Amino acid sequence: MRGQEGLERVATTVWDDLAIGPEERKFASQIVGVVMRQGADIDAALTEVTANWRLERLGAIERCVLRLAAAELIRGETPPKVVIQEAVRLAERYGSAQSARFVNGVVDALARRMGRL
């Protein structure tokens, strides 16, 4: 939500505030690392599968969830269907039912474009 600058610091602060354990931090920091290193590529890939929506016009929640899901798909360690399911759950929890449907379609399309589904 705050751009690439300071993303690691923001993530660490959130993890501290929520008392996230070491295993979860390790996993989450790997995903954050992908977003930091490949953010432009992630945004370009998302732009390709959201042809009718400019990324900057999406809500912050949807944009963040999509970036997280894309980073997790890039890592390739989590089954794509699990990535989609978790992205939808995040969108439902922090966005709306409409956000969840949108995220479902975009992450599914991205996974297919990446050859993961």
Rank of each mutant, 00 (worst) to 15 (best):
Q98H: 11
E8I: 10
L90A: 15
E56P: 06
I61T: 15
L7T: 07
L90F: 11
L55A: 07
R93N: 08
G6E: 04
V34I: 09
E24D: 14
Q85V: 04
S99T: 07
L117V: 11
A111V: 00
T78Y: 00
D108P: 01
V103D: 00
A97T: 14
M114G: 05
R25H: 03
D43F: 03
R113I: 05
P80M: 06
F102P: 03
E8H: 12
Y94F: 15
E77P: 07
Q98K: 15
T78C: 04
R93K: 14
R112A: 12
T47D: 10
T13M: 14
R112H: 09
E56R: 13
V88N: 03
Q98D: 13
I20L: 12
G39H: 04
L46E: 01
G3A: 07
V88L: 03
G59F: 02
R54C: 08
E5M: 09
A40S: 13
E72A: 04
V107L: 00
L110T: 01
F102C: 02
A40H: 10
R2I: 08
A19M: 13
D16S: 11
I42H: 02
R67M: 09
C64Y: 11
R112W: 06
V10P: 04
M1E: 08
A71V: 01
R89E: 14
P79M: 12
E56F: 07
E92C: 08
L90N: 09
A45E: 11
E62G: 07
I31S: 09
V34N: 00
N104F: 09
Q85K: 15
L58A: 03
I42D: 01
A44F: 05
I31T: 13
R57M: 09
E72I: 00
P79R: 15
F27T: 11
Q38C: 09
L55F: 13
A100L: 01
I42P: 04
I61G: 10
I61W: 05
V88S: 04
F102R: 09
V32Y: 02
V34A: 07
M36S: 12
L55I: 08
E8V: 12
A91P: 03
T47F: 04
Q38S: 14
R25V: 02
E23Q: 13
R116A: 10
L58H: 06
E72K: 03
G33H: 02
A91S: 08
L66M: 09
W53S: 12
R2Y: 11
M36Q: 15
A69E: 00
G59C: 04
E8T: 14
L55M: 13
G21T: 08
V103L: 01
A44G: 06
L117W: 11
R37D: 13
A111I: 01
V32C: 03
V10D: 12
A87H: 00
L110Y: 03
V65G: 06
F27Q: 14
A109H: 05
E5T: 10
E48C: 07
A70C: 02
N52Q: 15
V49C: 00
P79W: 08
P79D: 15
R37Y: 06
D43G: 11
R25A: 05
G95S: 02
R93L: 11
V106S: 00
P79A: 14
A69I: 01
N52W: 11
I84H: 03
S29C: 01
L73D: 05
P80W: 07
L90H: 10
L66Q: 05
I84K: 10
